[in-house]
Design a binder for these strands. Structure first.
Lengths: 149, 149
DNA sequence: TGATATATTTGGAGTCATACTAAATAGTTT
DNA sequence: AAACTATTTAGTATGACTCCAAATATATCA
């Protein structure tokens, strides 16, 4: 409803690998180089370069060739959702006998296929917990969406 | 530990589509024809045929060409896990504000990526509920695994 | 500055999962 | 046995992900 929040996304627009890349870039903050992602995620730089281009052309990243990438405003908003999704789902799983590491690993495998609607419902139902197993949970966008429509 | 239960699987061996096929065959009970799957899942018969062959050569199905398929013992065991996984996860999601249909649809999208270990832990933690949102939950294999190792 | 080293990108190719069409083959019905 | 239907095979395609090798840009150092 509010173009600042890009509420039109479903949460299913990015493939698993792209989710990883965006989350990585978000958590690094600032400009990120191809090599950073390549070495941390153990993927050939050429693969990173290609995917970064795709993410730039779909509006998630600003890409200055040979210089690096950073998130667009839309990319940041989306990344916030990705991180919140990961943390909410991981937290959920730790309530059912999985360790932090297990929950994290498990969720990493499937999170790309869980919709924003589902995450918001779970988040609501859990009472918008502030702390997840992999860091704090930010509910800004979550609240906006719940309150204004 | 017990060859009757094929406890060696992780739950991640089948791709999403193969999970759909095995679950469908399991729920139909008995011999299933290519056309049954084709018309219900809205996929070209040639695609079904190919995938059925793969599932047969990896030991999940008996395939009599031009006649149909049925589950092997291993296939049945695996299918029971697939159904249990689907129901446990769907039930879980309904505890967090999702309707039966929403939970089912959501889980269908990602269930192939949730490990047997995770499912067993969740199952344990929920107290082995007997009824899920899409039918009864069978805990035979689940109990065996928990008790004997 | 210019040569060299490093980082990044591009081009080409491959795998896996999924799916289709068209043609061949088997089974069934009359 | 002819005709109809079901199934399979062969060939092709796309999307996601990957790599290697070569080209290009940037950075460093002498």
């Amino acid at each position: 409803m509010n173009e600042q929040n890009y509420p039109e996304f479903t949460g299913l627009e990015l493939s698993p690998r792209k989710v990883d890349y965006i989350k990585f870039i978000f958590e690094k903050k600032g400009t990120v180089k191809t090599t950073d992602i390549s070495s941390c995620l153990q993927v050939d730089p050429s693969t990173i370069s290609k995917t970064l281009n795709e993410l730039a052309s779909t509006g998630y990243l600003n890409h200055v060739p040979y210089r690096g990438v950073d998130l667009t405003e839309m990319g940041k908003t989306y990344a916030e959702f990705l991180v919140r999704r990961h943390r909410i789902l991981s937290l959920l799983f730790t309530h059912y006998g999985l360790s932090t590491e297990e929950a994290c690993a498990e969720v990493s495998r499937f999170e790309a296929f869980v919709s924003k609607d589902a995450v918001n419902k779970i988040c609501n139902s859990m009472g918008h917990p502030m702390v997840g197993v992999c860091g704090e949970i930010n509910h800004d966008k979550c609240f906006h969406e719940e309150h204004y429509h």
